[in-house]
Design a protein around this nucleic acid. Structure first.
Lengths: 240, 240
DNA sequence: AGGTATTACCTACGGTGTAGAATATAGGCC
DNA sequence: GGCCTATATTCTACACCGTAGGTAATACCT
């Protein structure tokens, strides 16, 4: 027998568990994260979590969903134009990545199947249809936009060395040897504003412009460039 | 006391271990990969691996390095122009991602500090300097290019559900409900050629064009659109 | 009140990464 | 040859992990 407190409610719920998990990963990183640590954080038996979330994979999904929900929530209201919607999403997504650098790899790595994720995609694609964009372009758009966002933000925001307990430093360069890599070394100081907001906005606009160009994306290059350098998209193009 | 075979050489080496690890992850996925499985694959005690590679993290680095080396190796020779260099790199990178879909998340997620990685960056940036590109643009270029490549290829090539033993299927969509997401459902059939080569080439050109635009990247947007919106990002940019 | 479903807990099993110590071989030196 | 040392390999052990299966206590419905 001994004293048991088994049936006593611990106030667990999917939401509360997810919130605690988000907090824990933020503080200690993905590496060391696990069911048992989380349970101990919640003052609860590890197996109790399984009553609300099926397993570790589902737990990670719940974490992803939680931070994605933040993104939707922080956007007070959504604009009408698809480009402005995309900008709002992208900025909110980046803000989230900055808030949760150690969680972000989850979003970039695992396929997102939560309702919030689908809602966001629906919102974007619906707006593009309203604008009369070609269907094929619309179908590609989320891939281009979030593909870029994921890759770019992974590189700039979450260069997580591992499980130690630090406030998540931003990518630390390991000092480039100028003898081996002269060009890289010369450019190193310019990467000070690595991942800065201005840079992000610039690249975001580039990507959006690329999407806007649609199937003829490569033409975006020609427009602003002198006609000498860049040529047609597929056939002959010479760099410099 | 009992037969021991301790000192007998097992022919281990960093290279051989890395090659076996690549093969193992290709077959069984990252999820189930580990020192012990790899050791058993090599017919060797788990701890023997530690004589050549410090730990699991270093093991994953070795795997990354091995597949990155493939990329460098498959490129018979490098062109002169930076754009063509970038194209060659991007295509080789994609080919590698397709060959090793279950390894690729490693490259996108972990910071690459191997020699091959630095050499590639050096090659690209050096060529851009030769072409007289603005330094700030050059400093951003690898981030833009590989940021995009990582994100895009993660989404298209490696939607790995987990540790089961399959030949790595390409992203399976879970059937979208047209009642909830009409626009998405309507576009779903168009994502048939998801991640196809033509699409990749198209987006690659878009990204390269964006880089070519340099600091004035946002202007690429204006070209096809109204000139009202975009403002100067940091200071003035030479593009004009 | 009684019955049932849910929630929480306990135990246990097979797996993991890896520190530390023991041991057999390879290679250099005499 | 004989010896010595460095190195590669293995063995043992520990703390930890995810989670299957079983048990008890509470909440809820009737």
């Amino acid at each position: 027998m001994a004293k048991r407190t088994q049936g006593k409610p611990a106030g667990l719920s999917r939401q509360r568990i997810a919130a605690a998990a988000v907090d824990l990963v933020d503080r200690q990183g993905l590496e060391s994260f696990g069911v048992r640590r989380l349970a101990s954080e919640l003052g609860v038996d590890p197996m109790s979590i399984y009553n609300h979330i099926k397993g570790k994979a589902a737990l990670l999904d719940a974490v992803s969903e939680a931070v994605l929900t933040e993104v939707s929530a922080t956007a007070a209201q959504w604009p009408d134009g698809w480009m402005d919607i995309a900008r709002t999403m992208a900025r909110g997504y980046r803000d989230m990545a900055i808030r949760h650098p150690r969680i972000f790899p989850l979003l970039a790595t695992r396929a997102q199947t939560s309702v919030v994720a689908f809602e966001a995609l629906e919102r974007l694609t619906a707006a593009m249809r309203r604008a009369g964009i070609a269907d094929q372009t619309i179908a590609d758009a989320p891939l281009v936009l979030f593909g870029f966002l994921n890759g770019y933000l992974l590189a700039t925001v979450s260069a997580d060395p591992g499980g130690t307990d630090e406030p998540a430093t931003g990518a630390t360069q390991p000092a480039i040897d100028p003898a081996l890599y002269p060009a890289l070394a010369a450019l190193a100081p310019l990467q000070a504003g690595f991942g800065g907001e201005a840079e992000f906005e610039r690249m975001l606009e580039t990507v959006l412009a690329g999407i806007a160009e649609g199937a003829a994306g490569a033409q975006a290059a020609r427009s602003g460039r002198r006609p000498a350098t860049a040529a047609g998209p597929t056939s002959d193009h010479s760099g410099g």
